[in-house]
């Protein structure tokens, strides 16, 4: 499993379209539109991208969005702050479920 994720596989993304070209095209069009500058700048969107990449822990996304962030003029300081946001939200999501544990405990307690 050591080479489960390989750098060169990212460039093979287009192969996903082989068995369902229409759906893949729709995805790519949507993806491009979603990442294009709108009310949010390109810079803001790739920062969201790097945060999400870490939250979902996708190696391809981490590589791709690290490059995007750097090519948008951001440093490791910017990237690390974004990763902290992702981690904090993710950590908070775990922590808030402590209330569910409290609720469950209350239900079975005198």
């Amino acid at each position: 499993m050591g080479d489960y994720y390989r750098d060169e596989d990212l460039e093979r993304f287009g192969e996903i379209g082989k068995y369902s070209p229409e759906l893949f095209k729709k995805f790519m069009d949507w993806y491009s539109s979603a990442l294009a500058a709108g009310l949010l700048t390109k810079r803001e969107k790739v920062l969201i991208g790097i945060a999400v990449a870490h939250a979902i822990q996708c190696p391809y996304c981490i590589d791709a969005y690290t490059r995007s962030c750097i090519e948008e003029g951001m440093s490791l300081e910017h990237i690390t702050e974004a990763v902290h946001v992702a981690s904090a939200v993710r950590g908070g999501a775990s922590l808030i479920h402590g209330i569910q544990a409290h609720n469950a405990a209350d239900k079975m307690s005198l």
Binding site: T41, R43, I70, E71, E72, G73
Partner: peptide, 16 residues
Amino acid sequence: VYNPQGAFLPPAQLSL
């Protein structure tokens, strides 16, 4: 003058 600090392309001039 800004130069990328590695093997990547530079960002847009105005925003940087």
